[in-house]
Simulated scan of single mutants.
Amino acid sequence: MKKKDTTPRPVGLIPRAGALAARAGLDWFLLALISMIVLAYLWPEGGIDREPLSLGDVAGYGVSVIFFFYGLRLSPEKLKAGLSNWKLHMVVQLSTFILFPLLILPLHSLFKGTPQETLWLGVFYLAALPSTVSSSVVMVSIAGGNIPGAIFNASISSLMGIFITPLWMGLFLTSSSGDFDMWGVMGKLMVQVLLPVVLGILLHRYWGELAERNKGRLRVFDQIIILLIVYTSFCESFARKMFSGFSITDILILGVAMVGLFFLVYSLIFGITKLFGFNRENQITAIFCGSKKSLVHGTVMSKVLFPEATVVGIILLPIMMYHALQLLIASIIAQSEARKAAN
Score class of each variant (00 low, 15 high):
100 F>Q: 05
78 K>Y: 10
100 F>W: 15
110 L>C: 04
104 I>A: 15
66 I>H: 09
63 V>R: 04
73 R>Q: 13
61 Y>T: 01
80 K>Y: 12
73 R>E: 14
128 A>I: 01
52 P>C: 05
99 L>D: 09
117 E>V: 03
106 P>T: 04
87 K>M: 10
85 N>G: 03
110 L>V: 14
61 Y>V: 02
82 G>F: 12
125 Y>R: 00
66 I>C: 09
128 A>T: 02
114 T>R: 05
78 K>E: 14
68 F>H: 03
115 P>T: 07
88 L>H: 02
59 A>Y: 09
73 R>P: 03
65 V>K: 01
107 L>S: 10
50 R>F: 07
122 G>A: 02
116 Q>C: 01
130 P>G: 02
64 S>R: 06
62 G>V: 02
73 R>K: 09
93 Q>N: 07
103 L>D: 15
90 M>K: 10
93 Q>H: 15
131 S>F: 04
90 M>Y: 14
65 V>P: 00
122 G>P: 00
88 L>M: 14
62 G>I: 05
63 V>S: 09
102 L>Q: 07
98 I>T: 12
60 G>I: 02
123 V>C: 13
86 W>F: 15
87 K>I: 11
70 Y>N: 04
114 T>K: 11
61 Y>K: 02
99 L>Y: 11
128 A>W: 07
69 F>I: 06
64 S>M: 12
85 N>Y: 11
66 I>N: 07
84 S>R: 13
115 P>C: 08
71 G>S: 06
64 S>V: 08
97 F>C: 03
129 L>H: 03
53 L>F: 11
106 P>F: 10
51 E>W: 05
125 Y>N: 00
92 V>T: 12
102 L>T: 10
123 V>P: 00
56 G>L: 05
121 L>Q: 05
66 I>F: 14
63 V>C: 09
85 N>Q: 13
52 P>I: 04
103 L>G: 09
66 I>T: 10
79 L>S: 06
95 S>F: 15
123 V>I: 13
67 F>H: 10
60 G>S: 06
71 G>C: 08
50 R>C: 03
124 F>N: 00
90 M>C: 11
111 F>N: 02
122 G>C: 03
109 S>D: 12
99 L>H: 04
119 L>T: 00
82 G>L: 09
101 P>F: 12
99 L>F: 14
74 L>V: 04
64 S>C: 08
100 F>H: 11
108 H>K: 11
69 F>Q: 06
111 F>S: 02
55 L>D: 06
58 V>P: 00
81 A>L: 13
54 S>W: 03
121 L>N: 02
73 R>C: 11
84 S>N: 12
78 K>L: 13
91 V>N: 06
78 K>W: 14
81 A>K: 11
95 S>K: 01
118 T>C: 02
56 G>S: 11
105 L>E: 15
129 L>D: 04
129 L>E: 07
80 K>T: 08
76 P>F: 14
54 S>T: 02
97 F>H: 05
121 L>M: 11
91 V>A: 10
116 Q>L: 13
102 L>M: 15
81 A>H: 07
